[in-house]
């Protein structure tokens, strides 16, 4: 093994360990939540980490076709995130933590209105419909 190969194999080995750690940390965020958008952000990040893994495997095996796989995975991950964003928008907020909100925000909203907003099944119903019409 030449010096160059040694350098690269050590770097790849170290990077694989680091990526494993970050993968586990991100999975922890997916499990912990606490809300759906948090999980979606973490899943998006997971796709990025997996792309990193694929790149490392490409370097290790010398099989550059893996780049195409990484690009298509990136595309799928992007589309999944977009789909999740649309889903969040149409589903509305069903898990609003009550105590977490900034006091000024809740204080500025009149009481009856807030209740009606919470009761509305699809959250931002009218806004979504208006967006879709455009």
């Amino acid at each position: 093994m030449t010096t160059a190969e040694t350098i690269i194999s050590y770097a790849v080995w170290l990077a694989l360990v680091v990526l494993c750690v970050s993968f586990l940390l991100t999975v922890w965020r997916v499990i912990k939540g606490p809300t759906l958008p948090d999980r979606v952000v973490a899943l998006d990040m997971l796709t990025g980490i997996v792309i990193g893994f694929i790149a490392l495997i490409a370097i290790r095996t010398g099989f550059t076709l893996y780049i195409d796989i990484a690009i298509s995975l990136g595309l799928v991950g992007f589309l999944a995130t977009v789909a999740f964003a649309r889903f969040i928008l149409s589903r509305g907020n069903r898990e609003a933590p009550k105590g977490d909100m900034m006091k000024t925000f809740t204080a500025s909203v009149p009481e009856p209105r807030r209740k009606s907003a919470a009761r509305r099944p699809s959250g931002t119903g009218p806004a979504v419909r208006r967006k879709a019409k455009k």
Binding site: I8, A15, V18, L19, S22, W28, I49
Partner: peptide, 20 residues
């Protein structure tokens, strides 16, 4: 290459820590 690899892995780790 090694620098790029380690830098990329480091940024991924930082992002994961930041996420938590």
């Amino acid at each position: 290459t090694a620098l790029l690899i380690l830098g990329g892995a480091g940024f991924a780790l930082v992002a994961a820590i930041g996420l938590n």
